[in-house]
Simulated scan of single mutants.
Amino acid sequence: MKRISLLLIGLLLISSYSCKQAKKEAEEASEAIEKSVEMVQEEVMEESIAFKMEPKSDSEVSGEVSFTEKDGMVSMSATFSGLTPGEHAIHIHEKADCSAADATSSGGHWNPTAEPHGKWGDEGGFHKGDIGNFTADAEGNAAVSFETDQWCIGCEDPNKNIVGKAVIVHKGKDDFTSQPSGAAGARVSCTGIIQ
Results as ranks from 00 to 15, higher is better:
A78P: 01
K24W: 05
K160N: 04
C152G: 06
N161W: 14
K70R: 10
K70Q: 08
M53L: 15
K128A: 09
V61L: 08
L7R: 13
V61Y: 05
E47G: 04
G140N: 06
S77L: 07
E43G: 02
I92N: 07
V169A: 11
P55H: 03
T177F: 10
S16W: 08
A138M: 00
I92M: 08
N141H: 04
F176A: 11
L7W: 15
S145I: 08
N111P: 00
E47L: 12
G10W: 12
G185E: 14
G86E: 02
A114F: 13
S16Q: 08
A114D: 15
H117D: 01
T191Q: 01
G182M: 02
K2Y: 15
E147L: 10
M53F: 10
Q195W: 06
L6W: 14
S57F: 12
D71F: 03
R3T: 07
S99F: 09
G182N: 00
A50E: 14
A96D: 12
F176Q: 07
W151V: 06
F126Y: 11
S59E: 10
E47V: 11
S15N: 12
E34G: 03
I131P: 07
I9K: 14
L8P: 10
D102V: 09
E25T: 07
K23G: 12
K128Q: 11
N159A: 12
M1V: 11
R187D: 06
H88D: 02
Q41P: 00
A100L: 11
C155D: 14
A50R: 12
K35W: 03
L13D: 13
A143P: 00
K95V: 04
A26P: 08
F134W: 01
E147T: 15
A32T: 13
S66C: 10
E34T: 13
G185N: 15
S77Q: 12
S77F: 08
L6E: 15
I194R: 11
C155P: 09
E64Q: 13
M73W: 10
